[in-house]
Design a binder for these strands. Structure first.
Lengths: 193, 193
DNA sequence: CGAAAAAATTAAAGTAGTTGAAGAAATCAG
DNA sequence: CTGATTTCTTCAACTACTTTAATTTTTTCG
Protein backbone atom coordinates (compact mmCIF):
# COMPACT_ATOMS: atom_id res chain seq x y z
CA UNK A 1 0.00 0.00 0.00
CA UNK A 2 1.11 3.54 -0.71
CA UNK A 3 2.55 5.02 2.46
CA UNK A 4 3.81 8.33 1.10
CA UNK A 5 0.55 10.15 1.87
CA UNK A 6 0.88 9.15 5.53
CA UNK A 7 4.49 10.35 5.74
CA UNK A 8 3.54 13.57 4.01
CA UNK A 9 0.63 14.09 6.41
CA UNK A 10 2.91 13.63 9.42
CA UNK A 11 5.64 15.74 7.79
CA UNK A 12 3.28 18.70 7.74
CA UNK A 13 3.64 18.94 11.51
CA UNK A 14 6.83 17.20 12.64
CA UNK A 15 10.14 16.28 10.97
CA UNK A 16 11.11 12.61 11.07
CA UNK A 17 14.50 11.25 10.03
CA UNK A 18 14.74 8.15 7.81
CA UNK A 19 15.08 5.75 10.72
CA UNK A 20 12.11 7.19 12.58
CA UNK A 21 9.99 7.08 9.45
CA UNK A 22 10.87 3.47 8.85
CA UNK A 23 10.10 2.52 12.44
CA UNK A 24 6.83 4.38 12.27
CA UNK A 25 5.73 2.63 9.09
CA UNK A 26 6.59 -0.74 10.61
CA UNK A 27 3.84 -0.14 13.21
CA UNK A 28 1.07 0.47 10.67
CA UNK A 29 -0.93 -2.34 9.08
CA UNK A 30 -2.72 -1.91 5.78
CA UNK A 31 -6.44 -2.65 5.63
CA UNK A 32 -8.80 -2.75 2.67
CA UNK A 33 -12.54 -2.20 2.93
CA UNK A 34 -15.10 -2.84 0.21
CA UNK A 35 -17.86 -0.29 -0.18
CA UNK A 36 -20.47 -0.79 2.58
CA UNK A 37 -18.02 -2.78 4.70
CA UNK A 38 -17.57 -1.74 8.34
CA UNK A 39 -14.40 -0.51 9.96
CA UNK A 40 -16.20 -0.40 13.32
CA UNK A 41 -19.66 -1.28 14.59
CA UNK A 42 -21.67 0.12 17.47
CA UNK A 43 -20.91 -2.06 20.50
CA UNK A 44 -17.40 -3.05 19.41
CA UNK A 45 -14.25 -1.57 20.89
CA UNK A 46 -12.27 0.64 18.53
CA UNK A 47 -8.83 -1.00 18.47
CA UNK A 48 -7.02 1.27 16.02
CA UNK A 49 -6.53 4.78 14.79
CA UNK A 50 -6.97 4.77 11.03
CA UNK A 51 -5.39 6.88 8.31
CA UNK A 52 -7.27 6.91 5.01
CA UNK A 53 -5.00 6.32 2.03
CA UNK A 54 -7.77 6.07 -0.53
CA UNK A 55 -11.55 6.10 -0.48
CA UNK A 56 -14.21 7.55 1.79
CA UNK A 57 -15.94 6.58 5.05
CA UNK A 58 -18.68 7.87 7.35
CA UNK A 59 -18.79 7.86 11.15
CA UNK A 60 -22.38 7.69 12.35
CA UNK A 61 -24.78 6.69 15.08
CA UNK A 62 -28.11 4.92 14.68
CA UNK A 63 -30.96 6.08 16.89
CA UNK A 64 -33.76 3.88 18.26
CA UNK A 65 -35.84 4.55 15.12
CA UNK A 66 -33.04 3.40 12.85
CA UNK A 67 -32.17 6.89 11.64
CA UNK A 68 -28.57 7.57 10.75
CA UNK A 69 -26.75 10.63 12.18
CA UNK A 70 -23.40 11.33 10.59
CA UNK A 71 -20.71 12.80 12.85
CA UNK A 72 -18.03 13.04 10.23
CA UNK A 73 -16.90 11.95 6.82
CA UNK A 74 -13.31 10.97 6.08
CA UNK A 75 -11.43 10.91 2.79
CA UNK A 76 -7.82 10.52 1.66
CA UNK A 77 -5.45 12.09 4.16
CA UNK A 78 -7.88 12.10 7.10
CA UNK A 79 -7.78 10.14 10.35
CA UNK A 80 -10.88 8.35 11.61
CA UNK A 81 -11.78 6.30 14.63
CA UNK A 82 -13.73 6.55 17.86
CA UNK A 83 -11.32 8.22 20.22
CA UNK A 84 -13.38 7.60 23.36
CA UNK A 85 -13.56 3.87 22.69
CA UNK A 86 -9.94 3.70 21.52
CA UNK A 87 -8.63 5.39 24.65
CA UNK A 88 -10.86 3.84 27.28
CA UNK A 89 -11.55 0.42 25.82
CA UNK A 90 -15.27 1.01 26.20
CA UNK A 91 -17.82 -0.06 23.59
CA UNK A 92 -18.26 2.41 20.78
CA UNK A 93 -21.58 4.08 20.11
CA UNK A 94 -20.65 4.67 16.48
CA UNK A 95 -20.46 2.79 13.23
CA UNK A 96 -17.72 3.49 10.72
CA UNK A 97 -18.58 2.32 7.23
CA UNK A 98 -16.95 2.68 3.83
CA UNK A 99 -18.87 4.77 1.29
CA UNK A 100 -16.41 3.70 -1.42
CA UNK A 101 -13.79 0.95 -1.67
CA UNK A 102 -11.26 2.22 0.86
CA UNK A 103 -7.63 1.63 1.85
CA UNK A 104 -6.43 2.40 5.36
CA UNK A 105 -3.28 2.30 7.45
CA UNK A 106 -4.01 1.22 11.01
CA UNK A 107 -2.12 1.53 14.26
CA UNK A 108 -3.21 -0.19 17.46
CA UNK A 109 -3.09 1.35 20.91
CA UNK A 110 -0.09 -0.70 22.13
CA UNK A 111 1.82 0.24 18.99
CA UNK A 112 0.88 3.88 19.31
CA UNK A 113 2.07 3.89 22.92
CA UNK A 114 5.33 2.31 21.79
CA UNK A 115 5.61 4.97 19.09
CA UNK A 116 5.17 7.73 21.70
CA UNK A 117 7.97 6.14 23.73
CA UNK A 118 10.44 5.80 20.90
CA UNK A 119 9.57 8.91 18.89
CA UNK A 120 8.30 11.49 21.37
CA UNK A 121 7.75 13.97 18.54
CA UNK A 122 4.76 11.90 17.59
CA UNK A 123 3.04 12.82 20.80
CA UNK A 124 3.19 16.38 19.53
CA UNK A 125 1.81 15.30 16.16
CA UNK A 126 -1.25 13.66 17.64
CA UNK A 127 -1.82 16.57 19.99
CA UNK A 128 -1.93 18.88 16.98
CA UNK A 129 -4.29 16.51 15.18
CA UNK A 130 -6.54 16.49 18.21
CA UNK A 131 -6.44 20.28 18.53
CA UNK A 132 -7.52 20.67 14.93
CA UNK A 133 -10.33 18.17 15.35
CA UNK A 134 -11.47 19.87 18.54
CA UNK A 135 -11.53 23.27 16.87
CA UNK A 136 -13.47 21.91 13.89
CA UNK A 137 -16.05 20.35 16.19
CA UNK A 138 -16.42 23.57 18.17
CA UNK A 139 -17.07 25.41 14.94
CA UNK A 140 -19.65 22.82 13.90
CA UNK A 141 -21.49 23.21 17.21
CA UNK A 142 -21.50 26.96 16.72
CA UNK A 143 -22.98 26.53 13.27
CA UNK A 144 -25.63 24.10 14.43
CA UNK A 145 -26.70 26.74 16.98
CA UNK A 146 -26.55 29.82 14.78
CA UNK A 147 -27.45 28.73 11.24
CA UNK A 148 -30.61 27.31 9.73
CA UNK A 149 -30.50 24.33 7.36
CA UNK A 150 -29.82 26.45 4.25
CA UNK A 151 -26.94 28.21 5.99
CA UNK A 152 -25.45 24.94 7.21
CA UNK A 153 -25.64 23.43 3.75
CA UNK A 154 -23.96 26.51 2.27
CA UNK A 155 -21.10 26.30 4.78
CA UNK A 156 -20.71 22.58 4.17
CA UNK A 157 -20.38 23.07 0.42
CA UNK A 158 -18.04 26.01 0.90
CA UNK A 159 -15.81 24.14 3.32
CA UNK A 160 -15.82 20.75 1.60
CA UNK A 161 -16.53 21.41 -2.09
CA UNK A 162 -15.24 17.96 -3.05
CA UNK A 163 -17.81 16.20 -0.86
CA UNK A 164 -20.72 17.76 -2.74
CA UNK A 165 -19.78 15.75 -5.82
CA UNK A 166 -18.66 12.63 -4.08
CA UNK A 167 -21.16 11.93 -1.35
CA UNK A 168 -24.85 11.11 -1.93
CA UNK A 169 -27.25 13.87 -0.87
CA UNK A 170 -28.95 11.50 1.50
CA UNK A 171 -25.72 11.24 3.50
CA UNK A 172 -25.13 14.96 3.43
CA UNK A 173 -28.62 15.42 4.85
CA UNK A 174 -27.78 12.97 7.65
CA UNK A 175 -24.70 15.09 8.39
CA UNK A 176 -26.59 18.38 8.37
CA UNK A 177 -29.39 17.08 10.59
CA UNK A 178 -32.21 17.40 8.05
CA UNK A 179 -34.20 15.01 5.85
CA UNK A 180 -33.14 14.20 2.27
CA UNK A 181 -36.51 15.56 1.14
CA UNK A 182 -35.84 18.94 2.69
CA UNK A 183 -32.29 19.07 1.34
CA UNK A 184 -33.68 18.46 -2.13
CA UNK A 185 -36.06 21.41 -1.65
CA UNK A 186 -33.21 23.65 -0.47
CA UNK A 187 -31.13 22.77 -3.52
CA UNK A 188 -34.01 23.51 -5.85
CA UNK A 189 -34.37 26.96 -4.30
CA UNK A 190 -30.65 27.58 -4.61
CA UNK A 191 -30.74 26.65 -8.32
CA UNK A 192 -33.75 28.86 -9.03
CA UNK A 193 -32.78 31.85 -6.86
CA UNK B 1 -6.07 33.04 45.57
CA UNK B 2 -6.71 29.39 46.40
CA UNK B 3 -4.49 27.24 44.20
CA UNK B 4 -5.26 23.84 45.69
CA UNK B 5 -8.12 23.16 43.29
CA UNK B 6 -5.76 23.64 40.34
CA UNK B 7 -3.15 21.28 41.80
CA UNK B 8 -5.83 18.74 42.56
CA UNK B 9 -7.19 19.02 39.01
CA UNK B 10 -3.75 18.41 37.54
CA UNK B 11 -3.03 15.68 40.07
CA UNK B 12 -5.96 13.69 38.72
CA UNK B 13 -3.95 12.99 35.59
CA UNK B 14 -0.22 13.45 36.30
CA UNK B 15 1.96 13.34 39.43
CA UNK B 16 4.02 16.45 40.16
CA UNK B 17 6.71 16.69 42.82
CA UNK B 18 6.86 19.70 45.14
CA UNK B 19 9.38 21.59 42.99
CA UNK B 20 7.37 21.07 39.83
CA UNK B 21 4.18 22.17 41.53
CA UNK B 22 5.85 25.30 42.82
CA UNK B 23 7.26 26.14 39.40
CA UNK B 24 3.91 25.51 37.79
CA UNK B 25 2.08 27.80 40.19
CA UNK B 26 4.64 30.55 39.56
CA UNK B 27 3.48 30.67 35.94
CA UNK B 28 -0.19 31.25 36.76
CA UNK B 29 -1.63 34.70 37.41
CA UNK B 30 -4.81 35.23 39.40
CA UNK B 31 -7.63 37.19 37.79
CA UNK B 32 -10.93 38.32 39.23
CA UNK B 33 -14.02 39.06 37.16
CA UNK B 34 -17.16 40.76 38.36
CA UNK B 35 -20.47 39.37 37.16
CA UNK B 36 -21.05 40.46 33.53
CA UNK B 37 -17.38 41.29 33.03
CA UNK B 38 -15.62 39.85 29.98
CA UNK B 39 -12.69 37.47 29.99
CA UNK B 40 -12.55 37.67 26.19
CA UNK B 41 -14.41 39.54 23.47
CA UNK B 42 -15.13 38.62 19.88
CA UNK B 43 -12.31 40.14 17.80
CA UNK B 44 -9.69 39.99 20.53
CA UNK B 45 -6.92 37.41 20.64
CA UNK B 46 -7.21 34.89 23.45
CA UNK B 47 -3.90 35.26 25.32
CA UNK B 48 -4.42 32.75 28.11
CA UNK B 49 -5.80 29.41 29.13
CA UNK B 50 -7.96 29.90 32.17
CA UNK B 51 -8.70 27.66 35.12
CA UNK B 52 -11.84 28.55 37.08
CA UNK B 53 -11.24 28.62 40.83
CA UNK B 54 -14.64 30.03 41.72
CA UNK B 55 -17.67 31.27 39.85
CA UNK B 56 -19.21 30.60 36.48
CA UNK B 57 -18.69 31.81 32.88
CA UNK B 58 -20.24 31.31 29.45
CA UNK B 59 -18.48 31.01 26.08
CA UNK B 60 -20.74 32.26 23.30
CA UNK B 61 -21.02 33.77 19.86
CA UNK B 62 -23.30 36.58 18.75
CA UNK B 63 -24.94 36.26 15.35
CA UNK B 64 -25.79 39.13 13.00
CA UNK B 65 -29.22 39.47 14.66
CA UNK B 66 -27.67 39.83 18.10
CA UNK B 67 -28.74 36.38 19.27
CA UNK B 68 -26.49 34.60 21.71
CA UNK B 69 -25.36 31.00 21.09
CA UNK B 70 -23.63 29.37 24.02
CA UNK B 71 -20.87 26.89 23.23
CA UNK B 72 -20.07 25.99 26.79
CA UNK B 73 -20.43 26.93 30.40
CA UNK B 74 -17.58 26.70 32.86
CA UNK B 75 -17.62 26.41 36.64
CA UNK B 76 -15.13 25.66 39.41
CA UNK B 77 -12.52 23.18 38.23
CA UNK B 78 -13.07 23.72 34.50
CA UNK B 79 -10.77 25.21 31.89
CA UNK B 80 -12.05 27.83 29.45
CA UNK B 81 -10.61 29.78 26.57
CA UNK B 82 -10.72 29.91 22.80
CA UNK B 83 -8.19 27.32 21.77
CA UNK B 84 -8.13 28.31 18.10
CA UNK B 85 -7.33 31.91 18.92
CA UNK B 86 -4.93 30.95 21.71
CA UNK B 87 -2.92 28.65 19.46
CA UNK B 88 -2.94 30.61 16.23
CA UNK B 89 -3.04 34.19 17.48
CA UNK B 90 -6.07 34.85 15.30
CA UNK B 91 -9.01 36.94 16.43
CA UNK B 92 -11.57 35.04 18.44
CA UNK B 93 -15.14 34.65 17.29
CA UNK B 94 -16.34 34.13 20.83
CA UNK B 95 -17.11 36.13 23.92
CA UNK B 96 -16.35 34.78 27.37
CA UNK B 97 -18.33 36.47 30.11
CA UNK B 98 -18.79 35.91 33.81
CA UNK B 99 -22.27 34.81 34.90
CA UNK B 100 -21.24 35.24 38.54
CA UNK B 101 -18.32 36.94 40.27
CA UNK B 102 -15.48 34.68 39.19
CA UNK B 103 -11.87 33.92 40.13
CA UNK B 104 -9.46 32.47 37.59
CA UNK B 105 -5.88 31.31 37.30
CA UNK B 106 -4.38 32.23 33.94
CA UNK B 107 -1.39 31.02 31.99
CA UNK B 108 -0.14 32.70 28.83
CA UNK B 109 1.09 30.90 25.74
CA UNK B 110 4.80 31.71 26.31
CA UNK B 111 4.52 30.47 29.88
CA UNK B 112 2.67 27.35 28.81
CA UNK B 113 5.38 26.61 26.25
CA UNK B 114 7.98 27.09 28.94
CA UNK B 115 6.02 24.75 31.19
CA UNK B 116 5.99 22.07 28.48
CA UNK B 117 9.78 22.45 28.18
CA UNK B 118 10.53 22.18 31.87
CA UNK B 119 7.79 19.77 32.94
CA UNK B 120 7.10 17.55 29.92
CA UNK B 121 4.46 15.67 31.89
CA UNK B 122 2.28 18.72 31.49
CA UNK B 123 2.13 18.11 27.76
CA UNK B 124 0.45 14.87 28.63
CA UNK B 125 -1.95 16.62 31.00
CA UNK B 126 -3.14 19.07 28.38
CA UNK B 127 -3.43 16.32 25.80
CA UNK B 128 -5.75 14.45 28.14
CA UNK B 129 -7.73 17.64 28.79
CA UNK B 130 -8.08 18.13 25.07
CA UNK B 131 -9.12 14.52 24.51
CA UNK B 132 -11.86 14.84 27.08
CA UNK B 133 -13.08 18.09 25.58
CA UNK B 134 -13.03 16.59 22.11
CA UNK B 135 -15.03 13.58 23.23
CA UNK B 136 -17.58 15.78 25.00
CA UNK B 137 -18.03 17.92 21.90
CA UNK B 138 -18.45 14.84 19.71
CA UNK B 139 -21.17 13.64 22.03
CA UNK B 140 -22.88 17.02 21.91
CA UNK B 141 -22.88 16.98 18.11
CA UNK B 142 -24.39 13.51 18.20
CA UNK B 143 -27.12 14.74 20.53
CA UNK B 144 -27.87 17.79 18.44
CA UNK B 145 -28.38 15.45 15.48
CA UNK B 146 -30.36 12.73 17.19
CA UNK B 147 -32.44 14.36 19.93
CA UNK B 148 -35.26 16.91 19.85
CA UNK B 149 -35.31 19.89 22.23
CA UNK B 150 -36.97 17.95 25.06
CA UNK B 151 -34.40 15.18 24.79
CA UNK B 152 -31.50 17.62 24.75
CA UNK B 153 -32.84 19.42 27.81
CA UNK B 154 -33.23 16.10 29.60
CA UNK B 155 -29.65 15.12 28.84
CA UNK B 156 -28.38 18.53 29.91
CA UNK B 157 -30.10 18.29 33.28
CA UNK B 158 -28.99 14.69 33.72
CA UNK B 159 -25.37 15.49 32.87
CA UNK B 160 -25.05 18.83 34.67
CA UNK B 161 -27.64 18.79 37.47
CA UNK B 162 -25.92 21.68 39.25
CA UNK B 163 -26.34 23.98 36.26
CA UNK B 164 -30.10 23.66 36.32
CA UNK B 165 -30.18 25.51 39.65
CA UNK B 166 -27.37 27.92 38.98
CA UNK B 167 -27.82 29.16 35.44
CA UNK B 168 -30.81 31.23 34.24
CA UNK B 169 -33.15 29.35 31.89
CA UNK B 170 -32.57 31.92 29.22
CA UNK B 171 -28.91 30.90 29.08
CA UNK B 172 -29.72 27.22 29.09
CA UNK B 173 -32.02 27.82 26.12
CA UNK B 174 -29.14 29.57 24.30
CA UNK B 175 -27.02 26.49 24.98
CA UNK B 176 -29.67 24.04 23.78
CA UNK B 177 -30.41 25.99 20.60
CA UNK B 178 -34.01 26.90 21.43
CA UNK B 179 -35.87 30.01 22.60
CA UNK B 180 -36.49 30.72 26.29
CA UNK B 181 -40.21 30.67 25.49
CA UNK B 182 -40.05 27.15 24.17
CA UNK B 183 -37.92 25.95 27.07
CA UNK B 184 -40.51 27.33 29.45
CA UNK B 185 -43.18 25.34 27.59
CA UNK B 186 -41.09 22.16 27.75
CA UNK B 187 -40.59 22.55 31.49
CA UNK B 188 -44.29 23.05 32.03
CA UNK B 189 -45.02 19.80 30.19
CA UNK B 190 -42.37 17.98 32.25
CA UNK B 191 -43.95 19.22 35.50
CA UNK B 192 -47.45 18.26 34.44
CA UNK B 193 -46.66 14.93 32.76
C1' DC C 1 -25.54 -4.75 -20.78
C1' DG C 2 -29.79 -4.94 -18.16
C1' DA C 3 -32.56 -5.84 -14.05
C1' DA C 4 -32.90 -4.45 -9.54
C1' DA C 5 -31.96 -1.45 -5.93
C1' DA C 6 -31.01 2.95 -4.16
C1' DA C 7 -31.30 7.87 -4.41
C1' DA C 8 -33.53 12.13 -5.78
C1' DT C 9 -37.65 14.88 -6.75
C1' DT C 10 -42.28 16.72 -6.03
C1' DA C 11 -46.45 17.73 -3.57
C1' DA C 12 -49.58 17.98 0.32
C1' DA C 13 -50.58 17.63 5.05
C1' DG C 14 -48.70 17.72 9.69
C1' DT C 15 -45.63 19.18 13.78
C1' DA C 16 -41.78 21.13 16.49
C1' DG C 17 -40.20 25.19 17.48
C1' DT C 18 -40.40 30.65 16.72
C1' DT C 19 -42.19 35.26 17.12
C1' DG C 20 -44.32 39.03 19.34
C1' DA C 21 -46.69 40.91 22.96
C1' DA C 22 -48.16 41.48 27.69
C1' DG C 23 -48.29 40.53 32.53
C1' DA C 24 -46.12 38.23 36.71
C1' DA C 25 -42.11 36.88 39.21
C1' DA C 26 -37.51 37.14 40.43
C1' DT C 27 -33.10 39.51 40.82
C1' DC C 28 -30.05 43.40 41.06
C1' DA C 29 -27.79 47.64 42.49
C1' DG C 30 -27.84 51.75 44.98
C1' DC D 1 -35.35 48.19 51.42
C1' DT D 2 -36.92 49.79 47.13
C1' DG D 3 -37.25 50.99 42.28
C1' DA D 4 -35.45 49.42 38.07
C1' DT D 5 -34.18 45.77 35.25
C1' DT D 6 -34.07 41.24 33.81
C1' DT D 7 -36.20 36.84 33.54
C1' DC D 8 -40.10 33.73 33.28
C1' DT D 9 -44.67 32.49 31.76
C1' DT D 10 -48.66 32.25 28.76
C1' DC D 11 -51.12 32.66 24.48
C1' DA D 12 -51.97 32.83 19.59
C1' DA D 13 -50.31 33.27 15.02
C1' DC D 14 -46.65 31.82 12.14
C1' DT D 15 -42.62 29.25 9.73
C1' DA D 16 -38.98 25.90 9.09
C1' DC D 17 -38.74 21.45 8.72
C1' DT D 18 -40.88 16.51 8.70
C1' DT D 19 -43.70 12.84 7.08
C1' DT D 20 -45.82 10.03 3.77
C1' DA D 21 -46.31 8.57 -0.61
C1' DA D 22 -45.91 8.39 -5.57
C1' DT D 23 -42.83 9.10 -9.70
C1' DT D 24 -38.45 9.68 -11.94
C1' DT D 25 -33.55 9.36 -12.15
C1' DT D 26 -29.24 7.36 -11.05
C1' DT D 27 -26.31 3.79 -9.50
C1' DT D 28 -25.06 -0.86 -8.60
C1' DC D 29 -23.45 -5.34 -9.61
C1' DG D 30 -24.34 -10.06 -11.59
Amino acid sequence: MNTSLLLQNIGNHVQLDAGEAEFLLSLFQPKVLKRKAFLLRQGEVCRSENFIVKGCVKVYSLDENGFEHILMFGIEGWWVGDLLSFLTGRESRYHIEALEDTELLQITKPDLDQLYEQVPKMERFFRILLQNAFIAHMERINQSLSLDAAGRYGEFIRKYPAFGQRIPQKQIAAYLGITPVFLSMLRKKLMEG
